[in-house]
Design a protein around this nucleic acid. Structure first.
Length: 601
RNA sequence: GCGCGCGUAGCUCAAUUGGAUAGAGCAUCGGCCUUCGAAGCCGAGGGUUAAAGGUUCGAGUCCUUUCGCGCGCGCCA
């Protein structure tokens, strides 16, 4: 009872769901019960002159069913069998082209769909699965400060987490810190040798030590041996060394949390579960693999072989040490079998694709991709491309060093603040006269929004050029454009003297009349479907594309359809309600990207 | 050498996973501010989707080959 009360109105807010049901019924009636599983293949139409939605099923089906006639005849047959509810919502139904069924919705039906969507859920369906989803993100190395390489993992992972949470799933953000192993030992040894006071440790000291230690490890056998000895001491819990290790981590993580704050991501100390967490589980991993016969000794090392590739996965070195693959296997086991996750998502650089293939296949061989209650867990690598500089090579400073994340974010925020401040000087601007602290906060949202939207808005697998000038130009297809669209809606309500809560009290019916309103309504109704697509495909750029289309449709509407100055009070109320829905979808969608939507900018 | 990924307008990118005339932004050119915010709107030009073949009603998308770029390949993470 309670379930249907929640689920029913939501499903009625998505025209595709209703059309889908009607067309399935039509197919069964026209062709028989055995075709109940056929997907009618309903898609939004690109070219509005054809209508709003197209049904593509007839073309494929005509070939599979001998004697069903040509695709156009089959489409006509299906259409003739359509239940009356289809006629209730559509004012145009016709067969076109090679066998499309084109549908245009009645304006009253659009109003009813919008009415159904106008709840706190905004048409987003919630998943019922109660398993948590684990997302491996950020993955910062504690021996050095964050650079651009960590930007993508952090903001993509955070956005995916928000989308999945929005769909009703419990998400475990796992910051798999690089806090263990030889590199850490090398840096610790280097710091000790230089007698750096660890209580006053600065990031610059750390970066220098990291560089020096790496250089020595390459050239100096003795230094490498010393580092290995340091590692053994650390692994044996040498008290003084463990204390230093904690100081090192504190130093880096303080800066990491500052970057999280600048980035406005939902991450903090509670998300830390680094490599060191798994250190006591590594022998058990190797033991399990050897005992099950999946791994064997080879040239002194323990390896897992696969039938379809030369490359083995090494899980223990010939000197008895473990590798990151071992840690990753321990983490899979922990996340699936102890945390109970039925989806483990690794938001990690695409260059690690081969590595994750090996790890996932090994985990599957030994059965660690099954939760305790028997559910099959999906192990997914969401690989993303590199961040490149203007020369299309990995981004570096002029002196050839990695660009630090903080430098980059501070610069983006400064640009955002400068832009907001400049515009606030105009006496007619809604931001005119705002206190300095407000302008700072808005500028931060704009600058960070620009960086995030630029990162999230293209296909993840591609490398992309980090061009701050282009990102914060704030013209065209950018984060600030979306924020601006949102702020303009807010401005209408401010001018009307209606607060954000007052907007919810508008109970006038939706009235879709003008073409711009029609287009805007269709865009709004797609929201729930797009969020579902992103949850399934783990591709945030689909949401970016959608939000831009929505803002674009709104801008046209804004230009062509006066709201406060509408011809009659009924139109004014109906348009106000449409504006309210646009505002909430924009704010909600931007929120899923981790982008703030200020009321003024 | 083997494997993986990518190649779309001058530039940066989309294309609802095989659907109708391949779409946006930037840049260029032309219109629109005494009416709700011009970070905006409306319009124009710009394409052999790297190349060739194949699959079918239909291919940027799938298959084969070639070219170009990037990345990864037993004891780092």
């Amino acid at each position: 009872m309670a379930v249907s009360a929640v689920a029913e109105p939501q499903s009625f807010s998505d025209p595709v769901a209703i059309l889908n049901r009607a067309l399935r019924a039509a197919i069964v009636k026209a062709l028989g019960e055995e075709h109940a599983d056929i997907d009618p293949a309903i898609r939004a139409i690109q070219n509005p002159q054809f209508g709003d939605y197209q049904v593509n099923v007839a073309m494929g089906l005509a070939k599979q069913l001998p004697g069903s006639g040509n695709p156009r005849q089959l489409a006509a047959k299906i259409l003739a069998a359509a239940p009356p509810e289809l006629g209730d919502i559509a004012d145009k139904l016709e067969v076109a082209g090679p066998g499309f069924i084109n549908i245009r919705l009645k304006t009253e039906a659009l109003g009813r769909f919008l009415q159904a969507m106008d709840t706190a859920q905004l048409g987003v369906q919630r998943e019922t699965d109660t398993h948590p989803i684990a997302i491996d993100l950020c993955g910062v190395n504690v021996a050095k400060q964050m650079h651009v390489g960590h930007l993508r993992s952090t903001i993509i992972g955070d956005s995916l987490a928000r989308v999945l949470e929005r769909r009703g799933r419990r998400v475990l953000r796992e910051n798999h810190l690089g806090d263990w192993g030889l590199p850490i030992a090398m840096v610790l040894r280097e710091l000790r040798e230089k007698r750096v006071n660890l209580d006053a440790l600065q990031l610059d000291d750390l970066d220098r030590a990291y560089r020096d230690a790496q250089k020595k490890a390459e050239n100096d056998e003795a230094a490498l041996e010393a580092a290995k000895k340091t590692l053994v001491k650390l692994q044996n819990n040498d008290p003084a060394l463990v204390r230093d290790w904690h100081k090192l981590i504190d130093c880096t993580m303080r800066a990491v949390y500052e970057s999280f704050d600048l980035l406005s991501v939902n991450l903090g100390p509670e998300n830390n579960r680094g490599e060191s967490f798994y250190r006591d589980r590594l022998p058990g991993v190797v033991d399990a693999f050897v005992r099950s016969g999946i791994a064997h000794e080879d040239q002194g090392a323990i390896i897992v072989r696969f039938d379809d590739r030369e490359r083995p996965l090494i899980i223990r070195k010939s000197d008895g040490g473990y590798l990151y693959g071992t840690t990753d296997l321990a983490a899979v086991r922990y996340r699936v079998q102890e945390l109970g996750a039925d989806r483990v998502i690794y938001v990690v650089d695409a260059r690690q694709r081969d590595h994750f293939r090996d790890v996932f296949d090994a985990a599957h061989k030994i059965g660690w991709d099954r939760t305790k209650d028997g559910a099959r867990a999906e192990l997914i690598h969401v690989g993303f491309g590199s961040v490149l500089g203007a020369d299309h090579k990995p981004l570096k400073t002029r002196s050839g060093e990695n660009v630090t994340l903080k430098t980059l974010l501070v610069e983006a925020i400064a640009r955002g603040v400068a832009e907001v401040t400049k515009r606030a000087e105009d006496p007619t601007a809604p931001t005119h006269g705002l206190p300095e602290s407000d302008l700072q906060a808005i500028g931060k949202a704009v600058g960070i929004g620009a960086v995030k939207f630029a990162d999230l808005s293209n296909d993840l697998v591609r490398d992309y050029e980090f061009n701050l000038d282009r990102m914060v130009a704030f013209e065209g297809r950018t984060g600030p454009y979306l924020q601006y669209a949102h702020a303009r809606v807010c401005s209408i309500f401010a001018k009307a003297g209606i607060g954000m809560h007052g907007a919810g009290a508008i109970r006038s019916d939706f009235r879709i009349v003008e073409p711009a309103e029609h287009r805007l309504a269709l865009a709004l109704l797609k929201y729930g479907g797009v969020v579902a697509d992103v949850a399934r495909t783990l591709e945030p750029h689909r949401l970016c594309t959608y939000l831009y289309d929505l803002a674009d449709a709104y801008s046209t509407f804004y230009q062509e359809c006066p709201v406060l100055k509408a011809d009659d009070p009924a139109t004014r109320q109906a348009r106000l309600r449409l504006c309210d829905l646009v505002r909430r979808v924009l704010a909600d969608g931007l929120g899923l990207l981790g982008i703030d939507a200020p009321r003024r900018m």
